[in-house]
Design a protein around this nucleic acid. Sequence first.
DNA 1: CCTTAATCGAGACGGTACGTCGTGTCTTTAT
DNA 2: ATAAAGACACGACGTACCGTCTCGATTAAGG
Lengths: 212, 212, 212, 212
Amino acid sequence: MAGVNGQAAVGGSGTRRRGKVLEKAILDATIEQLWTVGYAGLSMEGVAAGAGTGKAALYRRWSNREDLVAAALSSVLPNPSAIVLSGDSREDLLALLRCVRDAIAVTHGTVFQVVRSEAAEAAGGMMHAVVGQRVMDPCHEMILDVLRAGVGRGRFRPGADSEMVATVGPAIIVHYVVHQGPTVPDDYLISIVDDILVPLTAAPCSRGAITF
Amino acid sequence: MAGVNGQAAVGGSGTRRRGKVLEKAILDATIEQLWTVGYAGLSMEGVAAGAGTGKAALYRRWSNREDLVAAALSSVLPNPSAIVLSGDSREDLLALLRCVRDAIAVTHGTVFQVVRSEAAEAAGGMMHAVVGQRVMDPCHEMILDVLRAGVGRGRFRPGADSEMVATVGPAIIVHYVVHQGPTVPDDYLISIVDDILVPLTAAPCSRGAITF
Amino acid sequence: MAGVNGQAAVGGSGTRRRGKVLEKAILDATIEQLWTVGYAGLSMEGVAAGAGTGKAALYRRWSNREDLVAAALSSVLPNPSAIVLSGDSREDLLALLRCVRDAIAVTHGTVFQVVRSEAAEAAGGMMHAVVGQRVMDPCHEMILDVLRAGVGRGRFRPGADSEMVATVGPAIIVHYVVHQGPTVPDDYLISIVDDILVPLTAAPCSRGAITF
Amino acid sequence: MAGVNGQAAVGGSGTRRRGKVLEKAILDATIEQLWTVGYAGLSMEGVAAGAGTGKAALYRRWSNREDLVAAALSSVLPNPSAIVLSGDSREDLLALLRCVRDAIAVTHGTVFQVVRSEAAEAAGGMMHAVVGQRVMDPCHEMILDVLRAGVGRGRFRPGADSEMVATVGPAIIVHYVVHQGPTVPDDYLISIVDDILVPLTAAPCSRGAITF
DNA sequence: CCTTAATCGAGACGGTACGTCGTGTCTTTAT
DNA sequence: ATAAAGACACGACGTACCGTCTCGATTAAGG
């Protein structure tokens, strides 16, 4: 458990880590602690021990537990801007929802282990804000882009490119995570697209007479 | 050996509180602490002091902080079964979403201050489960009932009475709370109904004889 | 999770005490507590507060109350080896008994506030052992030396240099303290020497050539 | 362990003890606790549980732990007035020292587990006083009587019937108990008499010329 | 090459809260 | 009326972390 890296806490291991190497070891130890004991059980002392360093090395970089965890999460979060949109609305929406899902999964649901605590709000870089700024917000914007494109091409009904429609998908994912746990199956995402987003954006009476 | 003094409580009240009276005082003090210092800042000692009692009286009833807060929240949660459905689908959905909103507002967002922590999962009566069982789940079922009724009367499209459609409204509210804070304006709820639920459930080609 | 504040000690002293300085402050506070509230009323929390530190600083050094008090007593006990023997048997015995008396007086009788408790026996450095090893045992040996010298010079009867004779003086002092309190008057010590030790060691038929 | 008597804590055992029967059960449970966990580990709750009763039954009879233990000890202490003196000084002194020894042994050294604590001094019937009044003081007086008789018959030197000489024997026993534990071997008592009391009381040059 | 300043590792420090246990008081219920 | 049971207000226990701080030891960089 202790010592994610290979040379910590061995005593006279010869070399002593500094700078980025040490920082990486600390963030790795933080992530490990999140997976093993969770956010509530994570302690600065535990992370320091796990990384084979002292508390001072942590506090020199991050002012408290929240900041440390935020930085650790930030280091493992997926990057929405890496997604290339195909132009196929359904596939693009699915890809973006998968990104949202992965952002939550990779943190093991930590974001929802502590959300909106007052202490967190005071701190600048709170965990939730990190996930929001790094993943949720960009995904939201990209979903909105897809919706606008769909409306522009007449594939979606007018007004389907609203903030709220763009919110529905991520919201359902978040709701699922909060209620069922951090692992959202792919079928569920497909279902969100097909059962919610498709009907919600469908052009009304798209083929006129057929409904007759 | 420990505790060698033994003075009885002299503080003001002539008689010593017991049972339900004391329990009420403790839960009230807990709610007050939640509003003043938040979940993260709430301590058993603080609640005991606030309630004018000792920690033992707390631990005799609830085994830890989570259980205590869950009980306190439970004591202030709205009761969905008190909602009388009018038969007007739109109004009924709105009433149910208001109930969900109130459940979160009344807890000052506490449910989302700590959600799905491992400790919480271990404990039987964790905070989130309380809100889920007491409000979210019943509301979900009632929303589903409204949807089924709408489908049954042909006001809603077939298939609109799905689990996922019923999830959309609460999910958006949760999403809002997590991102914007615990106070969800009524306009937002109306917008959820009109911009999401109405289009999502709209009978295809709503204008025409088919609705009959 | 616990301990969310973090203010550093602001209390008066510019710098934070460490090592020996802090240890001294703690032992002093312990002695003060012993005199003000007695052993039974002494608490780790009280000592920590009195010394202006935290309980951890105490438990880091001593594992429990007994050990702490033993250390505190040890710091104020008289040192028998500082006594220089004059060769005058009577004066030397008196000086040694005064040392025993002082050892008890300086602890305010604490040694006899808890003696031979099971907890004490388990612990290695229990209070009573401290006084025993530091004062009682050395004094016993020195008394024995004085007796042997007296016998050697024919001033004392043969056999007067026994363990039990050496025990008599301290035993009477202890008996007095247990029954009358920790302040043994000097007259009493003189009386022990003159009324007990002198007759007990007197050479038979002291007047006569045999003493040669 | 729990339930010294046969019917405690069994539930609906039919009869409920009162008065002397209950008092006896409590005192027995107290003695048992003294032997098993010692004075320091003895608690009112433990005694109540051991006796199969409630704390109220204890506090109705004795105001605190000290009083309870004093009463319990008192119930098992030997009675010096039962000793019949033979007239043989040596035998009589030995019998009295055995009484002192037994008084300490029967309490398992409890008297020296807490002695002269401030709390004890405040209370009227503290443990140590009980042993003192019930055994130590009477024995002291009886020893003095034996000494006076010896002096009166010319067997002892004049002045041998002093308070301090009478104190020596018990004092050495107490000293032994404090240092070696509550079990004083009979040989040790004999040694006290033969090596201390006999020389101390011996008539000087009792047969004149023989020493010559 | 050797200083020199930075920063590492370790852990003591003053402090808060934890969850447990015992005290002495007071209530409740049943005998 | 009193027994048994146990809740109550309280204080102390010994532990765990917090965030700050000190103290060598190590090490990268500058002269």
